[in-house]
């Protein structure tokens, strides 16, 4: 099933080549296609994915709110514990949160919120609220990009009923392509770069249109998505 000796692989490739009316592509032809991948040029980036950073931040907020995410602006990351506790109280939620096990979140002043039970790790079925970082926020559609890893288990993005995301202003980019560029840079290795097991692009809370085509929130994933936008980069 792997390797070039697999007869089914050979049959599919041969059928493609026969239909295209050519044999194996030449080395030059392959190099050209490899180069196209290496250059990974953007095709067409819509205007709404461009503009000043300040504009992108405003667009990110507006777009996220348009898909039923809520956005709260904080001036310092040390405000996160109090903001989270207030959010839970506002929505009548249990005072407990499962944090993504990143130093950044775990080292916040949680002791200022004695009523709040704070754990970190992957999500289980009983976790009602998670707090995770994001890799980037993408303005053009109000999309959060999450990368999986030891510090960010994917289950935190999907199992809890309420997903709270802390993202810094400086992480907001205009277009999807800008986020890919950042990801390539951050995950550079000998072969070029590698992606984590999972990259989640999340745009609003879970929803379904499968009952009479009317959109309802909270299908299988989180019923609410709350974004804490932290001002590390005053405009």
């Amino acid at each position: 099933m792997t390797g070039t000796a697999d007869p089914k692989r050979a049959a599919v490739l041969a059928s493609i080549r026969q239909s295209l009316g050519r044999g194996e592509p030449s080395r030059d032809a392959r190099r050209e296609l490899d180069d196209r991948i290496r250059r990974h040029k953007p095709n067409l980036i819509p205007k709404r994915g461009r503009g000043s950073h300040a504009e992108q931040v405003e667009r990110f907020v507006a777009m996220a709110e348009s898909v039923a995410a809520s956005v709260e602006r904080l001036t310092r990351d040390t405000d996160v514990p109090a903001a989270l506790a207030a959010y839970l109280r506002r929505h009548n939620l249990p005072m407990a949160v499962m944090l993504a096990p990143t130093d950044w979140l775990c080292d916040l002043p949680w002791d200022t919120q004695p009523m709040l039970t704070v754990n970190s790790g992957r999500a289980g079925d009983d976790d009602v609220v998670s707090l995770t970082p994001a890799f980037a926020g993408i303005a053009e559609t109000g999309t959060l990009m999450m990368t999986s890893g030891a510090a960010h288990p994917t289950t935190l993005n999907f199992l809890p009923d309420h997903h709270v995301v802390a993202v810094r202003r400086s992480q907001i980019v205009g277009a999807y392509e800008d986020a890919w560029d950042r990801l390539r840079k951050e995950r550079k290795n000998g072969r070029g770069f590698d992606l984590p097991r999972t990259v989640n692009m999340i745009t609003g809370p879970s929803r379904t249109g499968d009952i009479e085509l009317t959109i309802h929130l909270g299908a299988h994933g989180p019923r609410s998505l709350h974004i804490l936008l932290i001002d590390d980069d005053p405009a």
């Binding site: 999986s148 890893g149 288990p153 984590p196 999972t198 745009t203 879970s206």
Partner: peptide
């Protein structure tokens, strides 16, 4: 498809669980 600007979840999967991953 649905008239959304973007669907709620666009997910890239690359290989299996990595060293240190807690799920996947």
């Amino acid at each position: 498809a649905t008239g959304q600007d973007f669907s709620a979840y666009t997910t890239l999967s690359t290989g299996g669980r990595r060293d240190g991953d807690l799920d996947g």
